[in-house]
Design a protein around this nucleic acid. Structure first.
Lengths: 332, 332
DNA sequence: ATCGTAACCGAAAACGTTTCGGATCGCAAG
DNA sequence: CTTGCGATCCGAAACGTTTTCGGTTACGAT
C-alpha cells in the first residue's frame, strides 16, 4: 500500500542505505546514482515516514501548543498568538500539536508525561494562570518551554510578554497630557500575572508623572464586561471626582462605557476611558475605545522563534518584552 | 534517560511481551504478574512511546486540523470551531496537529502527501474556499476527512455546515413579519460555498413569502466591513426604496451600519439590517445587530465526532446541517 | 606486482512498541 | 503412562527509518 524506502531501493537497484543518503543529501553517494534514486523516489511518490524517522532519531520535530483554558472566550487574544506560533514553527519545519489542560486526562497525567508520551520536543504555553498547578511543572521540567504572558524563567523555560509596565505608562501619560486630574484604575483579578505587572506600571507611572492617587481608587474586576461595569460604578460612588479610568482590559473598559451610557456620563468629556488589549471590538463601540495594543501575532512568533533556538542552537531561554502601542481613539 | 518497556520488563522480571499485555489489558497474563508489572511501571513512571506504537500499529491516533488561510481574520468563526474540534477529539483520545495551507510548502507538496508523511489518520478541514486547489484532493483522496462549511461528499469525505437556507429564511421571515417591503441582499463573494447556499436560501425565502425582488438588488461583496459599506451604498443608489437589507455576514452588516450612520439613515426606522454569523461584535455596535447565529462549537465537535466514527466504526461519511438561530436585536 | 587511498556502496544494528507462534508446566482425562 | 489442554509466559519478527562500520572497487603511486 504505502511505498517505503525499501520499495525505492528495490526499484532503483540500490540498498536502502543509499536511498536514505541520496534523499538526505549525504555525500557518500555517486552523482548518477543519486539522480537515479531521486527519479525513482519521485516516480513512486515516496514520502519518508515521520514516525519512523522520529523513532530512530529520537526527535519528533513536533512541538506542543498548550492552552490552559480553551473555551473561556480567548478569541481576542489567543487566536492571533496561536497563528503566530504556528506560522513560525511551520517555517522551521516543526509540526504543532494542540494541547489543552482541561481535558479529562488533566488530573490523570502530568504535564511532562503528556509531552513525553508524544515525544514533543518543546512546548509553548499560553493562557495559563499563576495559580495553575502546571506552572510549577513547566518551570521546573527539563522540557524546553516558552510561556506567553507569564514571567517564568529557568534553565529550560523562557517567556515573552508585552511590556505591560510601559504600556500602562503610555496610557497614563496620555491621560495626564490631556489634563486629567483624578485617574482611577480597574485591574483584572490578582492571580493573573499581567494584573501584577499592570499594577506595577500604574503605580510607577502615577509617581513618575507626579499624580496623587488613593489606594482605593484601584479596584479589581474579573476581565469581563459586566465586571468592568460594576467596578466602575463602585469606583465612581467612592470617588465622584474621578475624570479618567484606566482598565486593565478592553472588555472591562467596554463594560465601563456601557455603564456610562446607562448613567448619562459623557465620554470622554466627563470621563476618559482607556483599555488594554486592542481587541477588534474596541474600534466599533461608541465611543470607540482608546487602548494599549499588544503585538499578538509577534508574541506568538517570537515565542516560537525562541523555542527553536533553544532546541537547535541550544541557546539559553530568556525573557522577552515586546513593545506595546497606545492607540488613541474617541474614548480618551 | 527515558524509561522503556524493556526497563519495566527487566525490573519486573518478565518479558517485554508480558509487560505490553499487562498494560494493554491482554488476557494472556496472570493476575499476580499483571499487578507486579503495573506496580513497577508506576514506580518507574513508564510512559509508552506514541511514536513507537504508531510505527508498529500503523495508526498514529493523530488527526490534522487543516485551516486554509489562518491569518485572514478568521477569529470570529475559526476559533470556536477549532476548540470544538479539539475538545471532541481529545475526548476520544486523538491528538490534533495544526496544518495550514499557506505555508511555504503549500506548492511543494500535495495535501495528501503532507498527511501521509505525518501518518495523520484523518483531517478536518475548515475555512477552505471552493476554488482552493486542495478541494479536489480532499474529496477524491482516500484519506478520511470532514469539511466544515463546504458541501463536499464522497466515499471518504463528509461535511458539516449550518443550514444556511433556513438561516436566511428566518431572517427574511422576520423582515417580512415586521412589515418590510423592499428587501435587498448583500452576499459574500461567489466562490465561497456559503454564498451559494445563502443565495439559494434568499431566493427560496423571497418566493415562499411572496416577495418581489429584482435581480440587481442582490449584490456581492467581500465579507469585509468596507465591502459591506460600499455595497450598501451601491444598493441604495440603485434602489432608494429599499427598506431592509440582509447581509451574508455580520462584518459586512456592520459596514452597512457605519454607512447608514454616515448618511443619516436611521436603523431600523428607515432601514432594517440583519447579518449572519453572530460574531461577538454584533452585540456591541449601535444599534446592536440582529443576526443569524451558527453553532460554531458544535460544528467543530460534530465534525470531529463524524470523523472518529468514520475511523473507528468505518461509518460512511454524511452531510450534516446544523440548525441556525435568529437573534433579534436592535437593527431589525 | 603491491600498496594506499579515495570513492562508492551495503549489512546490520538500533529506535520502542505489538503480536504471532510456539514453549513450558501442571493436571485431568483417557 | 501417555495425551491433551488450559493457563502463562517468552522469543523473535515486524513497523520504516538512520547510521556505523566495513567491504569492494578502481586507480595512481611506489
Amino acid at each position: 500500500m504505502t511505498v517505503t524506502i525499501r520499495d525505492v531501493a528495490r526499484a532503483a537497484g540500490v540498498s536502502i542505505t543509499t536511498v536514505s543518503r541520496a534523499l538526505n543529501g549525504g555525500d557518500d553517494v555517486g552523482e548518477e546514482t543519486r539522480q537515479r534514486v531521486l527519479e525513482v523516489a519521485k516516480k513512486l511518490n515516496y514520502r519518508p515516514s515521520h514516525v519512523a524517522r522520529s523513532l530512530v532519531l529520537q526527535k519528533s520535530r513536533n512541538i506542543g501548543l498548550l492552552v490552559s483554558d480553551f473555551n473561556r472566550g480567548g478569541h481576542h487574544f489567543m487566536y492571533d498568538v496561536l497563528v503566530g506560533v504556528h506560522d513560525k514553527l511551520a517555517e522551521y519545519g516543526y509540526d504543532v500539536t494542540l494541547v489543552s489542560t482541561n481535558t479529562a486526562r488533566q488530573q490523570l497525567i502530568s504535564y511532562v508525561d503528556f509531552c513525553r508520551e508524544r515525544s514533543l520536543e518543546g512546548v509553548v504555553v499560553m493562557g495559563i494562570r499563576l495559580d495553575d498547578p502546571y506552572v510549577e511543572e513547566v518551570v521546573e521540567s527539563t522540557l524546553p518551554s516558552v510561556v506567553i504572558d507569564l514571567p517564568l524563567l529557568s534553565r529550560h523555560c523562557g517567556y515573552v510578554m508585552t511590556d505591560n509596565v510601559n504600556g500602562v505608562r503610555y496610557a497614563i501619560r496620555h491621560l495626564v497630557n490631556t489634563g486629567r486630574q483624578h485617574i482611577g484604575f480597574i485591574n483584572g483579578y490578582s492571580h493573573a500575572a499581567v494584573s501584577i505587572e499592570r499594577l506595577r506600571g500604574f503605580e510607577a507611572a502615577m509617581r513618575a508623572y507626579g499624580m496623587a492617587y488613593s489606594r482605593d481608587s484601584i479596584l479589581h474586576a474579573d476581565f469581563t464586561i459586566e465586571g468592568g461595569a460594576k467596578a466602575l460604578a463602585d469606583l465612581l460612588s467612592r470617588h465622584p471626582e474621578t475624570d479618567a479610568v484606566f482598565f486593565a482590559s478592553d472588555l472591562m473598559a467596554i463594560g465601563g462605557i456601557q455603564h456610562c451610557k446607562a448613567c448619562g456620563i459623557r465620554i470622554p468629556d466627563d470621563l476618559a476611558i482607556i483599555g488594554f488589549d486592542n481587541i477588534e471590538l474596541g474600534r466599533f463601540v461608541t465611543p470607540s475605545l482608546t487602548t494599549v495594543a499588544q503585538p499578538r501575532y509577534e508574541m506568538g512568533s517570537d515565542a516560537a522563534e525562541m523555542l527553536v533556538r533553544m532546541l537547535q542552537e541550544d541557546e539559553q531561554p530568556s525573557g522577552t518584552l515586546l513593545p506595546p502601542e497606545l492607540i488613541v481613539r474617541e474614548s480618551a
